[in-house]
Design a protein around this nucleic acid. Structure first.
Lengths: 149, 149
DNA sequence: TGGTAACTGAAAGTGATTTTCACTTGGGTC
DNA sequence: GACCCAAGTGAAAATCACTTTCAGTTACCA
């Protein structure tokens, strides 16, 4: 039996959900799988379509509900792109940020605890005491650079 | 004749719009004014309501169109809050970031060219060459701290 | 094996945004 | 100052993005 990377990730996710008291159902598996296989942020509609490839009668509402749940437990992350926040990527729990390729949209996470690294004297300049932040980077991924795009 | 700060800002904005070939109309002035007077991010509906205080028959569609135009020229900025990107604040053109108070939502800009200051070796770690970023901070403003909130 | 609370899909409801179109107007021209 | 017309406008309708409701189904614990 061959285990793909996606299968291993799904296994881990399902264990995590079960551990948190969530049921692992066929519709949820379909959404999880679509998320795990994607290499770029996907809209709810796209996830619905891809999820249906695995579970034909997957309902759109279930996709919304599953994403909400996955976001809550840190397994999915909402991405800001094109003036809206309607796309999702798979995520690992914990504090991290994302970087998205401006050509192919492939999105990666990187650990962010050491990022900010905020401008010196920000509190003095603005009067605000910083308690949180939200950072998204844009760049060009290795393969798009290699293909000269 | 007394010039308030808001009046001065509006004057500058109107000059900028005219310079770019946009017409300065009563509906646009109403939206600009509502934006300039706000101390926190406002939704489209709120801007519509406030704009009507100055120009009674301001249409909702015009608010959308004006915001789109202002965002394009850098005079308004969309703010991400509560899982959506539906609020706007006045903005100064150029590269800067925002910080929003988690209590009163008052939002300030700060210059961001010196921010990132990204984690060393990000390109090596992720394979991405960074070309841009989007950063929003959350904190507590001076007056909310003073009031012990 | 049940039993049951969690989960589901369809349909209807809501709210945000865009499109369309006939009408109005800012601002340059004479 | 009157005229012109492309840019701008508001209302209504259409579209899109969710959310709620509800009757039926199912994962999983005892």
């Amino acid at each position: 039996m061959i285990f793909t990377w996606v299968a291993i990730v799904l296994q881990a996710w399902e264990g995590k959900l079960r551990g948190l008291g969530y049921r692992v159902t066929a519709p949820r598996r379909a959404v999880l799988r679509a998320l795990a296989r994607a290499h770029r942020p996907l809209s709810v509609a796209e996830l619905h379509k891809r999820g249906r490839a695995q579970y034909a009668c997957l309902g759109l509402v279930t996709v919304y509900r599953t994403l909400q749940m996955l976001e809550r437990v840190g397994l999915a992350r909402r991405i800001h792109a094109g003036g809206a926040c309607r796309s999702f990527v798979a995520s690992t729990p914990g504090h991290s940020h994302t970087i998205t390729c401006e050509h192919c949209e492939k999105t990666a996470e990187f650990d962010g605890d050491d990022v900010c690294l905020l401008p010196a004297g920000l509190e003095e300049r603005t009067g605000y005491r910083v308690s949180g932040h939200w950072l998204q980077l844009v760049g060009v991924c290795r393969s798009c650079r290699a293909s000269g795009d």
